[in-house]
Design a protein around this nucleic acid. Structure first.
Lengths: 105, 105
DNA sequence: AATTGATGCAATCATTCAGTTGCAGATCAC
DNA sequence: GTGATCTGCAACTGAATGATTGCATCAATT
């Protein structure tokens, strides 16, 4: 269901413009040209960002006639969040264990 | 408790070397020099990465004599995961609503 | 105090990347 | 078919960044 590697997803999410695109797509599916009308960047720049987002599984595209509509995939975000939560919890567990040892409990 | 902006945290997590550092720190607190002994990059490169990680609240540092020890903060990861999950769920909710409308349910 | 080991700062280099412009190709409307 | 519109590819530019080397500084050990 989800992409293999985790790091590229974070790299994709580490850009303000891409979040603007995701936010705009959150209002409803749209094409690169339509997004270019709402954001202060060119269509080609948006097309590149959409390509990045699609490669990591954050959006999907559907061809409708002569335009290509993009849609946000929330499931990938949830999956990423789940894996991140697991890692964070593991580290906190270790820290707690160390603290217990240090305090002689 | 956590840093303000979300995007820089993702940018910080979007680098393989920084994950190597986080993984190494997961085995126990360490200094930049100690990490340089375990990873295939120079101490200065690691120092820069640690600076980035510290700025977004993923690690904290404690001075111990002449060395500076770094520790992973799992709480920031968990916090980031929570916010990500919330966004993903919201998007999926909207998608489901749109799909229902489209299918005339 | 002299030496050793650790951090910090600065300059440099190569690569990556976000963004642009320009043009060619494809598809709908008329 | 002709024109308008949307996509796709390619080349280019400028800025950000990952990584390096070199040197200065500061603290602990002897």
């Amino acid at each position: 269901m989800t992409a293999g590697t985790l790091v590229p997803v974070f790299a994709a999410l580490g850009d303000e413009t891409r979040w603007s695109i995701l936010a705009a797509l959150g209002e409803g599916d749209a094409s690169a040209s339509a997004l270019a009308g709402r954001l202060p960047v060119t269509r080609q720049a948006i097309a590149k960002h959409l390509s990045v987002l699609q490669e990591v599984g954050l959006v999907e595209s559907v061809r409708v006639g002569r335009e290509v509509r993009y849609r946000v995939l929330g499931a990938q975000l949830s999956e990423t969040a789940r894996r991140l939560e697991a890692i964070g919890a593991e580290w906190d567990r270790r820290l707690a264990a160390i603290k217990e040892i240090a305090e002689g409990l």
